[in-house]
Design a protein around this nucleic acid. Structure first.
Lengths: 198, 198
DNA sequence: CCTACCGATCGGTAGG
DNA sequence: CCTACCGATCGGTAGG
């Protein structure tokens, strides 16, 4: 046995530091979080962090890159599938909400703290997010071509409306709420696909 | 004449400081902006700012409080009107987008930097935002009661979906784009009210 | 609005 | 992982 602790969910000090940073960056922002805050959360002195990580920014790079990957991985299968665009878009919306719900703070970092990546890392993050948006746009486009989605609408605005609603979910989703992430995703998909009007 | 400058849009040093702070808080975040950054943008030395403002936080308080007021003022008339909930909700969506478009950076501060208000100011900001959300919820509820909106939907999720899409607009709206804020608002209202499905 | 400065805190390092 | 520390920068002030 490597540990006798009951709640030993950590796999190592680096992961503990990353999780603490994720939480604090989400709550206080990257620039509002000091290495001393992170050290305090982990239970070591500030200088000790540097035995496990290279820099504050390297922590942000890891969190954001991994976070974007999670969204892409969750949505990709439905985006690339061959079924009805209606079903696939619904599934993508639900998958997105499930990733948010899994860790709303991580999502807040992915959505709002990427600006603080070094100037050479920002274009990569933007490019990956653009690709993510395009996977939604592609399915919507397919739906229009198939006569399932409205042909008169502005595709770009429709996709930004959908993604905007999704990207706002970490601001309000609560794991303690009555609705599961799947239920929330399905309700949102209903509103976004079918509207609210009778 | 108080000034011979061609582009004298400022009404005083306090306003110039406020505008510079709004821009920088929106771009770099509150904690990522130093008083030296603001002083630099205004063209004075850091210490000189304190002849016009009380503190960094007082600047944030002003920007956020004024920003929330703009959204409330823009949307209130339609929220309190007596016409069709469909038309009124459409008008509220357009009005919201127009406030965002008027100054996306101010909106970013209102939506994301309020967390850095002092602990005694946060509840007020949250309360005002909740009231804003309720004005949307009220009109949606009226629409359901009138049989114009779907009775089966989850009201809370529907309103959060609409407001999420709206609150994300400062991330992508460009005053230089082809579409005016009114056009964007109307397209978003179309998607949110009628959905994207045929 | 500038000069000159304050104590506190920042990210990070050397050496053990 | 700790001790002890580095130069830089932070929000803000006194006095003119």
């Amino acid at each position: 046995m490597a540990s006798t602790e009951t709640l030993d969910v950590e796999t190592g000090p680096r992961e503990a530091i990353r999780d603490a940073a994720m939480h604090l960056f989400g709550k206080q922002g990257y620039t509002g979080t000091s290495m001393r805050d992170i050290a305090n959360a982990v239970g070591v002195l500030p200088g000790s962090l540097y035995a496990h990580i290279e820099s504050k920014e390297a922590l942000l790079v890891d969190i954001v890159a991994d976070g974007i990957s999670r969204f892409i991985s969750a949505v990709e299968p439905s985006a690339k599938a061959t079924g009805s665009p209606v079903d696939r878009l619904r599934a993508m919306i639900v998958a997105h909400v499930e990733v948010v719900a899994d860790n709303p703070e991580r999502s807040l970092v992915v959505f709002h703290q990427w600006r603080f990546l070094g100037p050479e890392k920002v274009p990569t993050a933007i490019e990956r997010r653009r690709a993510y948006e395009k996977s939604f746009a592609g399915v919507v486009e397919e739906g229009v071509a198939a006569g399932l989605f409205k042909s008169g609408m502005n595709l770009r605005i429709a996709v930004l409306t959908i993604l905007g609603a999704l990207n706002w979910t970490p601001e309000w989703f609560s794991p303690d709420g009555k609705l599961s992430s799947k239920e929330v995703g399905e309700l949102m998909a209903g509103t976004l696909l079918g509207g609210i009007q009778v």
